[in-house]
């Protein structure tokens, strides 16, 4: 018998505030939800703490209110010209992800400094995420560094084990994979902690389950991942 070949189908990630597990980060979610009260919010935290999710959710929510928004993933853009920031001050809410990638890049720092001033002058809103706090970022342009320190800077708390299990189960559900509490807890306890690695492993398990037409159990998991 031929093995079942899974179709290369990936669910589209949907980022909104409802599917963000906010444990420990309630103030952050609340602040982003009411962004009209703040001109500038700076989110920082280790990777896999949900920065991208929150920025995307902010875009989503503002768009629902009929606002123009722009999400700028510096991971894709920082090797390009900083001209992409030109004219952005006409947009109601701008979310810039992974700002640590442009620290110490003079052109980007100056462009962001200019954009910051324009957004403030226009009464628009800015959300920036980073792996480090504004003071630790290593921004060389003091004019920009001090501006980045002026906003509401909030530190993201990493997920606790219980919440990670929940996030993992939600993700599995989206893949159409049944992941019970015990197996999810096993994964959280035995596998790398960061969500990005867990996603990759979860997809690997999903494929294996489909190919072999098996349910995801701890023994199957151990066998598949050769633990």
């Amino acid at each position: 018998m031929h093995p079942q070949i899974p179709l290369p189908f990936k669910p589209q990630d949907e980022y909104n505030f409802n599917n963000f597990i906010a444990t420990g980060n309630e103030l952050i979610v609340q602040s982003l939800n009411t962004i009209e009260n703040e001109f500038f919010i700076f989110l920082w935290g280790a990777s896999s703490t949900g920065k991208t999710h929150l920025l995307q959710a902010t875009c989503q929510q503002q768009a629902l209110q009929g606002k123009t928004v722009c999400y700028l993933p510096l991971i894709d853009l920082h090797t390009l010209s900083s001209d992409i920031l030109d004219g952005m001050d006409g947009i109601d809410t701008i979310c810039i992800d992974d700002i640590q990638l442009i620290s110490n890049k003079r052109d980007w720092e100056v462009s962001l400094f200019n954009l910051f001033n324009q957004i403030k002058q226009q009464g628009k809103h800015l959300v920036i995420s980073s792996t480090q706090s504004p003071q630790q970022l290593g921004i060389q342009l003091n004019d920009l560094k001090s501006r980045l320190s002026s906003g509401l800077a909030l530190n993201l708390t990493p997920l606790d084990d219980e919440s990670t299990v929940q996030v993992l189960q939600n993700r599995a559900l989206k893949l159409g994979l049944e992941l019970n509490q015990d197996t999810a807890s096993y994964m959280v306890n035995r596998l790398p902690r960061d969500l990005a690695s867990l996603w990759v492993l979860l997809e690997k398990l999903d494929k294996a389950c489909m190919t072999e037409q098996r349910k995801l159990t701890i023994p199957f998991l151990k066998n598949t991942l050769q633990l």
């Binding site: 875009c59 928004v69 722009c70 952005m88 979310c95």
Partner: peptide
């Protein structure tokens, strides 16, 4: 969010 929503 990156390319379409910024358009007016």
């Amino acid at each position: 969010n990156t390319w379409i929503r910024p358009l007016q």
